[in-house]
Design a protein around this nucleic acid. Structure first.
Length: 295
RNA sequence: GCCGGGUUAGCUCAGUGGCAGAGCAGUGGACUGAAAAUCCACGUGUCCGCAGUUCGAUUCUGCGAUCCGGCA
């Protein structure tokens, strides 16, 4: 006796690959609900620079102010809530995005215990210690986490230590997964590097013309420049320009280069994933989904 | 036509009579609470060509090619 699990679809790919455009069409075609998995489009007031498309309904876009702390834990909780709701309503949820960690946390059910307390002070204290010492300390309190982090990667060492010291995540949960109660079809958009870079560069020029600098200036007037939200590619370079550290031309050049680097990092997430069905054309994606829904 | 300057990595250029360098661009990888973040790794290319000097030439000399200035 076979019980069929409910089904969801995920559409993944690097920035500029056309995910949003495809999602819009798929939503119409299948009456599907689009859930964005993008760690930057969650922020309100950051529209131009994050490439938001507000011409159709997407969940998990524009949900927090740039000052708000938001992590994969929040994302996982919200996304799972929406997926369950849509499945109950017999709608097809489609998760669309390029943030590997967020996507995988949901699709593979990463076990992430609830963080009830947080210590800003502890983080500040740890930031003053050098990486080597942090690493040695982490080895003592959580050797499992230490084994998984490069001793030179200070940011991740700090994070792991915070969690261990505050005893928020029992070491055993690290790396644990809980199989989600649905079946997922993961579609990846195949792209040609050169073509993608050219498209991205043109898009960045267009975004600048559309007032990106103004958008960043307004944000800078309202909020502190060192918010995590402003570590977003583009905003950080434009802020450097607005503070007179570099010229606009240099900023644009850096934005392009950094976006290219980002594309490569994204592809590193997806490339080796055997679950992803890679397609070049939108029609192929439609076909795959039809087949999946009828299986 | 004459006079000068150049020709070295995809681009801009540094450099040396003894295994060829930098910046930028490019590439691969890691990833469970900041993730568009953070971190790691990757440089053989007729040093324009031919000949000469030399133990040895990308480097010095000659000739040629080519580009850029200036003068005609």
């Amino acid at each position: 006796m076979l019980v069929t699990k409910p089904k969801i679809v995920a559409l993944v790919g690097p920035t500029g690959s056309g995910k949003t455009e495809w999602a819009k069409k798929l939503a119409q075609k299948f009456g599907a609900k689009i859930i964005s998995a993008d760690s930057r489009q969650i922020y309100k007031e950051m529209d131009i620079g994050t490439g938001k498309d507000k011409s159709f309904k997407q969940d998990l876009i524009d949900i927090v102010r740039p000052t708000k702390k938001f992590s994969v834990w929040d994302f996982q909780r919200l996304a799972n809530g929406l997926i369950n709701r849509y499945l109950n309503m017999k709608n097809l949820p489609i998760l669309v995005g390029g943030t590997g960690l967020y996507l995988y946390a949901v699709l593979y059910g990463y076990v992430i215990p609830n963080l009830k307390e947080e210590s800003e002070k502890l983080r500040e204290k740890l930031a003053k210690i050098d990486s080597r010492k942090l690493y040695d300390q982490l080895k003592k309190v959580d050797s499992r986490a230490a084994a998984n982090i490069d001793p030179r990667n200070k940011r991740r060492l700090i994070r792991a230590l915070e969690i261990s010291l505050l005893n928020l995540r029992p070491s055993e949960s690290l790396g644990k997964k809980k199989r989600p109660p649905y079946k997922a079809l993961i579609i990846g958009i195949k792209t040609d590097r050169q073509t993608l870079y050219a498209k991205i560069d043109a898009r960045i020029d267009r975004m600048i013309k559309n007032g990106w600098v103004e958008e960043a200036r307004n944000l800078l007037e309202k909020y502190r420049a060192d918010l995590p939200a402003f570590s977003t590619i583009g905003y950080k370079e434009i802020i450097d320009y607005l503070k007179g550290r570099i010229t606009l031309k240099e900023a644009i050049k850096k934005i392009k280069a950094n976006t290219h680097d980002y594309v490569r990092r994204q592809e590193t997430w997806f490339r080796k994933n055997k679950d992803i069905k890679w397609v070049e054309k939108y029609e192929e994606a439609e076909k795959l989904i039809k087949k999946f829904l009828n299986s």
